[in-house]
Write a protein that binds this DNA or RNA. Structure first.
Lengths: 233, 233
DNA sequence: AGCTTATTCGTCATCTTGACGATAAGGCGA
DNA sequence: TCGCCTTATCGTCAAGATGACGAATAAGCT
């Protein structure tokens, strides 16, 4: 290996976001071993020999959620390598960000003893639950990335089932941004945007209220002009 | 060290961009040793023991350009860890993106035998010069990040000297985006944006044409609504 | 003084947004 | 069956932003 000094352990951590019950939630696991034993943490693990970073992230995602690669949006978030972030030594972790639709079934296929969805607000709000390592910061960065990408991409649909209504899509924006949106203006914006969403033809049947048209994602990946969040001084 | 297996070598690579002569240019070094000996590459190097990733990037930037930390915009770009990207073994590299004003003095303080500014167009255009490792892809990602951030942040000013004219700022946009902009509409946009740039009071003296007002950056870091590039499908 | 050059100010039609009224289309109870 | 309730969808209107372009301004140069 011509004198290459391996100077770090490389891991991946996952920020898996979903919207359930109009709340933005993140998948956490409870650590079973030191360090930070018993503390909530982002799922993750070591990158295997000859394994790409993205592949490792997809593998971890499948192990924790049962979601097959390609079944969810998965993108690299950032890499964290502060010297003291892991008491065991030099651990450099590349975080990945995943968007999942609300799974009807519970978190399946998880090998971790305790994995569960936790409200993001409870972790980043006024009196936050402390996470292991620097995972609070990683989560903060992931949520900010998600909020920002909703503005100018069609990624909100990654939180939805393949067919969805405009109102469902709107509730994704409202949950991720933590802000109510005007249903009429939102409807106008997303239906008039070129190839953003396209009607399926069918409608929902529902308990109360007018049936809604079903849509699926259009080909467009970018939303121009963007849909800017309110406020944000 | 409780059984922590160091499974990778961690490095940082730098995408240092500047605008010189109305062209977007990137700082490259010529490799003096195998692998890819003699090939152009992004500057970079191994992360030292107990050194943060961002610190390592700032150190490399200073070693290559003489620019002190804080003297340039520096942000993490992405991390590249494909198994075969370095023939010497498992090398995971975190790329950082830096924006520099056009330095009047040549690239100073460089320890590399040959470091020089190269037109980005010559590297990413129709018949690109091949770079070492996966550096062409890293450069592509860095340039796309730069193009995108000009749209909604005030980072274009990071390419300028502390005091600059509206036209200088416009030429930054034109060089990075590779697209001409209407001087009158650009002027209206940047001068009317809240706290984006603020007048210094002085004006330039120049060989031909009306003297221009000098500006410095305002407090705003975000540009709302954004300044979208033309075209872009 | 006129010419050249680059900056800055105006105008106007078009597009987009935010606020909000009005209508449509189902279920449900009386 | 008839209103009523709820949610979805369509319209309107003023304010703001944009793209295209004309015009005025303020220097240096010949």
């Amino acid at each position: 290996m011509s004198g290459l000094r391996l100077n770090a352990a490389i891991t991946v951590d996952l920020v898996v976001l979903t919207v359930r019950g109009d709340q933005l939630q993140v998948l956490l696991v409870r650590r079973g071993a030191a360090p930070f034993k018993g503390r909530w943490a982002l799922p993750g693990g070591f990158v295997e020999e000859r394994e790409d970073l993205a592949t490792a992230a997809a593998r971890e995602l499948r192990e924790e959620t049962g979601v097959a690669p390609g079944g969810a949006h998965l993108e690299q978030l950032a890499t964290y390598g502060a010297p003291g972030r892991d008491p065991r030594g030099r651990v450099v972790s590349t975080a990945y960000l995943a968007f999942l639709p609300d799974m009807p079934q519970p978190v399946a296929g998880s090998d971790a003893a305790a994995a569960s969805w936790v409200e993001v607000e409870a972790l980043l709000g006024a009196s936050p639950t402390r996470l292991a390592f620097d995972h609070t910061q990683i989560l903060r960065d992931g949520v900010e990335r998600a909020r920002s990408k909703l503005e100018y991409t069609s990624l909100a649909a990654a939180f939805c089932r393949p067919e969805f209504t405009v109102a469902e899509l709107r509730r994704i924006y409202e949950a991720v941004w933590g802000t109510p949106l005007d249903p009429r203006n939102f409807h106008r914006k997303v239906t008039s945007a070129e190839r953003f969403i396209e009607p399926v033809g069918a409608t929902t049947r529902r308990v109360g209220g007018r049936p809604a048209q079903l849509f699926r994602v259009g080909g467009a990946t970018l939303l121009t002009p963007p849909l800017l969040r309110p406020d944000r001084g």
